[in-house]
Nucleic acid binder design. Sequence first.
RNA 1: UGGGGCGUGGCCAAGUGGUUAAGGCAUCGGGUUUUGAUCCCGACAUUCGGAGGUUCGAAUCCUCCCGCCCCAGCCA
Length: 552
Amino acid sequence: MTDSDKPTNFIQQIIGDDLASGKTSKVVTRFPPEPNGYLHIGHAKSICVNFGLAESFAGECNLRFDDTNPEKESDEYVQSIIEDVKWLGFNWSGDIRFASDYFDQLYQWACDLIYQNKAYVCELNVEQMREYRGTLTEAGRESPYRYRPAAESRALLEQMKAGEIPEGAMTLRAKIDMASPNINMRDPVLYRIKRIAHHRTGDKWNIYPAYDFAHGQEDAIEGVTHSICTLEFAANRPLYNWFIENLDVPSTPSQYEFGRLNINYSITSKRKLKQLVDEGHVEAWDDPRMPTISGLRRRGVSPQAIRNFCDSLAVAKTDGVVDMAQFEHFIRDDLNINARRAMCVLKPLLVTFTNYDQSEQFTASSHPQRDDLGSRELPFDRQIYIDQSDFSEDTGLSRKKFKRLVLGEYVRLRGAYIIRADEVIRDTTGDIQEIKASVIENTVGADAPEGIRPRGVIHWVSALNSVDCTVNLYDRLFNQALPDSGEGSFTDHINPNSLKVLKGCKAELSLANIQPTERYQFEREGYFCRDSKTDESLVFNCTIGLRDNWKA
RNA sequence: UGGGGCGUGGCCAAGUGGUUAAGGCAUCGGGUUUUGAUCCCGACAUUCGGAGGUUCGAAUCCUCCCGCCCCAGCCA
């Protein structure tokens, strides 16, 4: 679908209206991750939505780190997020922004609120505050500290800031409405004491602003016009607006919410992905089985495939679960068009020709539909490898069911000769060790001669001129469609067989020195890329298998 | 349960009172093919969570009911 015939979503309609009415002159959006983990496919959707909206309306999109909680954040996460956004191909407007750059301004606004008698320092502890807050059905009670004089709150806040008050002893709270049906409005915490260093501000601060007190004001400072977030923040919107209305902010942004991305057999929660890493269920954040941007990159998924997938998703208020097959479709779609073809035998079976003793070199195109991708040379010798699954001794197999090599019959070697299997050589244990076969003359690049009907086309590699490699095959990380639902932990549903390592695979020579950023199709197998974390040996990661429409 | 949000085929969805309810994914047939890939054709909701009502006409408006998600962190 092209941009023009794609239906406009509700946010595009709102922006269109705002532009038409003059409410907005230039659209400014923002992608505001907290640097407390690596970005995942769910963030990719948010990135595409925010940057995409800005681009389509000739506006701008900021990259802002919402680093208001030093406890969970680090520079490692900041760097990974920057790399991932860049890799996806988006350009943010101006410099990278940090909530921590606004800490002074935020503090000033907190003081303003105190003098307006709309904020106070509260000495209730966590348990007491929970008790006073009330429940979903009962109103809360006002804190005994709610009406303390502004000057007193102001002095106490200064002490909190100076590190003179122990953690947990005091908070700064907004004075709104303890009976509000919206629990977020029941005197929310604005500042809490955290006497720990921040990855950017060091030990300058002993108090840090809470999300609600920071986010809208950050948007206002940056001139964000449309602040787009996910559905779970809808209940925070009245509070977001309350701060914008009660503070002397430079602009008035509006918040809109859309449904976050869920994919079956996967997880899109930073917290849970961190748990997978911390508990060692996966190798790291960029484990190729992870739905992180870095994991997908290492797996061989292209940024364009991720963007195409995200663009295929609806920006709406429904919270559905997208089928993994939909993502896989876009991964294959992009790879099919852009990946060079090569051959690699995963489970080698030696084939020796009894009527051929030369060495030739064939030229094979790198892509069946794209000449611009060039070609490569394929050495052909008297011994080759084919895949074990491509040979059978069962002569009763129908041609329709088994389009591969059968004892006594013919098969086409991709880009090379038609051959016939003549004899099976077994080892002492009775396993097939080698096939003796014959090359059919003059069949390279030519139709099969009269009377010879190859059952199909199989891939191969010269046994004398190929390279050894290791291939990592992946299966879904979870064996349950919704690992998060039901009783128990999502970790109970981890697929123990999500990684299969194949050693002793044989790759064609052209694959020996490729870069991890190049993506290949190993014909008849799937799409692969070289692993970026192992450079001493040749290791390939399977991005995704080819579609398999035949029923065995 | 108070508040907020959402329910259209197996999945994601368009649809904003007026021809036979878009499209994508998946699935199932068939064709092409030196990849069982790609590509190409074809099939796939008498019905829009349910029940009433308004209307010449309803997925779209009204009423009631049912179901699912989010909010009771000094997380974001």
